[in-house]
Design a protein around this nucleic acid. Structure first.
Lengths: 212, 212
DNA sequence: AATTCCAGAGAACAGTTGTTAACTGCATGG
DNA sequence: CCATGCAGTTAACAACTGTTCTCTGGAATT
């Protein structure tokens, strides 16, 4: 499928990735709408004009970052939500997955949380689309569960959205714990895990009694 | 309590409010971290240096905006969550309140949603504090409900946070409906109302079966 | 081997930014 | 009534921004 691309293309991809990485780093302390193109190129060590070879604008770069942050997450979501094991186990597994992801890609998580309602319309739109895809996929997995028998499509989707939003909130709380002083980190992480678990448990309860 | 303040102080408050209003307007299309002080003063029609008479920086102004947007909301929250009437009624009432508030103060709602995870630390902190107060207040009201008998303090607070986050999500969805093309507005608003109602209903179900 | 292509460099542009200093005029308090 | 205080003005600063045009060196194509 993928043929080795020439030296030329390879180098281009490398600079492009360097721009994305530098931008992601700079975005830890500001929003995309205040990110300057010169700022990014300076951090990479290339001329400002080189930016245009890869992106039309910083908004365009932001859209690419959305793809990088969320694009590869779909299979992970599917397998996690897919019904294997006890109910309680599934909740534990999902929350641990979130914690692990935040730990591994904190800058990506922050970027999504920040720009979901941020000041750059195309980026908001890109995030909205990805999250809608997530919700659709969660819905598909929920539908396979015997518990969902008798549920309308609409109700499955509303539950899926509830789950997706809950995941994002939890991720953002883990991030806050991660960024706080190291002394409190372990305790705060444990606290977030505990609260999120119980919230999921409560939603699960509501789910089981939905058709009463 | 409040004595009429002199012409001097009155005029100062007036420009201060003008700065806040102008900033809120400008923040509809960008994030606080990219808001320039000159931009704000220009919009008001006052010299850039006048800004310093009121705020140390735009971040400082942001904190003031948080107070303006959320400070006066506490009594409203309390009376809405307070247990009067049927369960279903309460949900309808709460969601209608949110819809009405978004309709009346869209810019404030957008500002909070945007800056909650935005790029300006003091503002994030200010929002976090206000939302924690909301959660505490919701918890206090929940505790009064007979349904909460036998609940631990921790569980009440985790449910309160779930409600608060849910309110914010719903508010932000109403806002999106409001900003979309006018043709779809009514339908999207109805759809948001319906989904949010059912999500609240599901959470309420989980709440009732929590102690099983 | 000769030619084309193109990622990145370099220089220059008009316009913007936050912050400083010294000022002016008017409401205020003695 | 006169002296003080202070909200807002004016002017100037160095630093920064996005965008344009021109150029260069080496990979890609023929």
């Amino acid at each position: 499928m993928s043929h080795t691309l020439g030296i030329r293309q390879a180098q281009k991809q490398k600079t492009r990735q360097a721009l994305l990485d530098a931008a992601l780093g700079l975005l830890e302390e500001q929003s995309l709408s205040s990110l300057g193109l010169r700022e990014v190129t300076r951090a990479v060590g290339v001329a400002p004009t080189a930016f245009y070879r890869h992106f039309r604008s910083t908004a365009d770069l932001g859209v690419a970052l959305v793809e990088e942050a969320l694009g590869s997450l779909h299979p992970m979501i599917r397998t996690t939500v897919s019904a294997t094991g006890d109910h309680e186990e599934r909740i534990t597994r999902a929350i641990e997955l979130i914690a692990r992801h935040v730990d591994g890609y904190p800058a990506h998580v922050r970027f999504i949380a920040r720009e979901r309602h941020g000041g750059v319309q195309p980026v908001r739109e890109a995030i909205r689309e990805q999250l809608a895809r997530f919700a659709q996929e969660v819905k598909d997995e929920l539908a396979k569960d015997p518990v969902s028998e008798g549920w309308s499509e609409d109700d499955l989707l509303m539950l899926a959205h509830l789950y997706v939003d809950q995941m994002l909130i939890t991720a953002s709380l883990f991030l806050e714990a991660l960024e706080g002083p190291e002394k409190e980190r372990a305790q705060r992480t444990r606290h977030v895990t505990q609260v999120a678990t119980r919230q999921m448990r409560l939603i699960g309860l509501g789910r089981h009694h939905w058709l009463d």
